[in-house]
Design a protein around this nucleic acid. Structure first.
Ligand SMILES: [Mn+2]
Ligand SMILES: [Mn+2]
Ligand SMILES: [Mn+2]
Ligand SMILES: [Mn+2]
Lengths: 219, 219
DNA sequence: CCACTTTTTTAGACATATCTAAATTTTATT
DNA sequence: AATAAAATTTAGATATGTCTAAAAAAGTGG
């Protein structure tokens, strides 16, 4: 049996693995989960025991195939529940993450299959994040973070890579949602902030905002 | 904070309280939960501390108002989720209880309010059990257990008071579901079993089955 | 009312998950 | 290469929830 805590650790390790090619560090997991490095060390021993991770003391962590499949399943559940909450129950996209954090741990394969069908096999969650397949594959959205694009590029917002409430509220205030058209007007070298056009009106956003906006380029 | 375990104990105490007017015993809780009397004693101390129960050593347990409201809320969540699983996801009525046992612990008042609205404020769950109101009231269905009725009484099945898989499968095999018409043909004194007519065909059922079938009398 | 049974509680142990503080290992800097 | 700094692990403590075995209280029949 896998505990709720173990699931949260495995999910955090996958999230961090996807951000870089290096092995995941104890400290990065601690900060992702919001706990101490000591607790992470304790848990890594258990995850190793259960063959969910590759781990050598002081050398960092990676997921085994078993761990990767488990983590992907949890993300699949999380994103399907988020879709249900927004599409069926009319939650705002900024409210669903915290509820999905609980729902993602419900154990029933049948439930998720039936939910998937009920939602008509959605490909993306309310934040534009791709929903992993039943087979454990995370589809690649081939959208690019806004901060990687060149000046005068035009594109559509395909998704966000952060689902903090404050961030999503700020986007809503800026009139940015999935499908919004954005043009890069100017890139400020000093702090990597950007002047952008959002649906014909001009705004200035920090690099931290741009980093978490996924854009599909259009002509 | 109330833990998942505490919620299960409080729910069990309410369930047992509804079955008789006496205080609930340690042993009955143990058998309802499927644990030992020792574990129950341990937990009762914690529930007393949190003012969820009235409890004196060796004297039995009852719920405080706070405990009763909490227990009712959990049952409300359980029955709303069961309704969702059957009505929206096409689960069979015999499969939903075990999944609802997990879903009933999801903490989000907003989620339950929105689910209730989405389901169009159902009054009964898939087993015919009344769904408690947001205010913590369990509506009385004023249906009567089949074993309490007289010979030649006719009635409609309004619900069941047991959601064990084996029991529900057996009912399905007998062609009994919510709304089925039943007539009592004969009561066997020896073992309190019954000969009944189910939609024009005759069957013999044990007292244990009759006890868990709620009937509304018709002419 | 006294032995005997049943019920309930307590004692002591174990497993999980977390924390702070201290020790150890790795890495970076002179 | 030695030393300082940073990262990581271990030691020891705490909290929750469970269990078995033993002790204590309540209930029962003669
Ligand atoms: Mn999320
Ligand atoms: Mn999301
Ligand atoms: Mn149920
Ligand atoms: Mn039910």
């Amino acid at each position: 049996m896998i505990t709720l805590s173990e699931e949260n650790y495995i999910k955090a390790i996958l999230t961090l693995s996807l951000k870089s090619l290096e092995k995941v560090s104890t400290n990065s997991i601690a900060s992702e989960i919001g706990t101490t490095a000591a607790s992470v060390s304790d848990m890594l021993k258990k995850l190793l025991e259960k063959k969910l991770i590759n781990y050598e003391k002081y050398k960092g962590v990676s997921l085994t195939n078993k761990g990767r499949v488990l983590a992907t399943t949890i993300i699949r559940k999380h994103r399907l529940w988020e879709t249900f909450l927004v599409d069926c129950l009319n939650f705002d996209w900024s409210e669903v993450h915290i509820v999905a954090e609980q729902l993602e741990h419900i154990q029933s394969e049948k439930l998720i299959d039936k939910l998937d069908k009920f939602l008509e096999y959605p490909e993306f969650d309310p934040h534009g994040e791709p929903i992993p397949t039943k087979e454990g594959i995370i589809p690649n959205s081939n959208a690019i973070p806004l901060n990687k694009l060149n000046t005068f590029t035009k594109g559509l917002v395909m998704g966000v890579t952060l689902d903090e409430k404050k961030f999503l509220h700020y986007l809503t205030k800026l009139n940015i949602s999935i499908g919004t058209k954005i043009t890069i007007e100017e890139k400020i070298d000093f702090d990597n902030s950007l002047n952008i056009k959002i649906n014909d009106s001009f705004h200035h956003v920090s690099s931290n905002v741009a980093k978490h906006l996924l854009i599909k380029i259009i002509k």
